[in-house]
């Protein structure tokens, strides 16, 4: 490869990288804000107001006050006592706000192989969904997706990050009828 074509490659790669730089993360939703589809379905963007966290029926309230995620221990999909409490509150909110559908995202930390972690994330999402079903939420309002270790909410090579990355996030998707 000549020098010219190499530089061309570099320039092109840089340009593409710049264009595709994804939305900056770090908002309170973290990985959860990624939503299902994440804008992949071109043109089919759902718009919704987060609202005031003090409004118990707002999505902001769901995310910040109730808590949109539960955590797991290494290689496990068992819900903790604390996790169940969070899900109980989620179930109450979902019952009170029947117009919303949810996507449950399962995630794993980076201390496993890629494909196994997809399975593990699915297991966590499923455990979460099954619990919500047991709390009376209809299965047809819910969908699961696993991101494996692809979407860490904290990207540090330390235990504290891995602990928060092993999670299932309940993402409330816009209006139910949208």
């Amino acid at each position: 490869m000549s020098l010219t074509s190499k530089s061309l490659l570099l320039v092109a790669a840089l340009a593409l990288a710049a264009c595709n730089n994804p939305r900056p993360g770090g908002d309170f939703g973290g990985g959860g804000a990624d939503g299902f589809g994440g804008g992949f379905n071109d043109g089919n963007i759902q718009t919704g107001m987060l609202g005031d966290p003090n409004d118990p029926n707002s999505i902001a309230h769901f995310q910040q006050r109730i808590g949109d995620r539960v955590f797991f221990t290494t290689d496990s999909s068992s819900l903790s006592e604390e996790g169940r409490a969070t899900l109980n509150a989620q179930a109450r909110w979902l019952t009170a706000n029947p117009q919303f559908a949810i996507v449950i995202e399962g995630h794993a930390d980076e201390r496993g192989t890629r494909e196994y972690n997809v399975s593990l994330g699915e297991r966590r999402a499923n455990a979460t969904m099954q619990y919500l079903i047991s709390q009376g939420i209809s299965a047809n309002r819910m969908r699961t997706v696993s991101y494996g270790k692809e979407r860490p909410v904290e990207a540090c090579p330390e235990q504290r990050c891995w602990d928060v990355n092993r999670r299932a996030v309940t993402v409330v998707s816009g209006g139910r009828t949208s």
Partner: peptide
């Protein structure tokens, strides 16, 4: 490329 939390692959 891109940030770890939302990698472009």
């Amino acid at each position: 490329s891109g940030p770890r939390g939302n990698r472009t692959k």
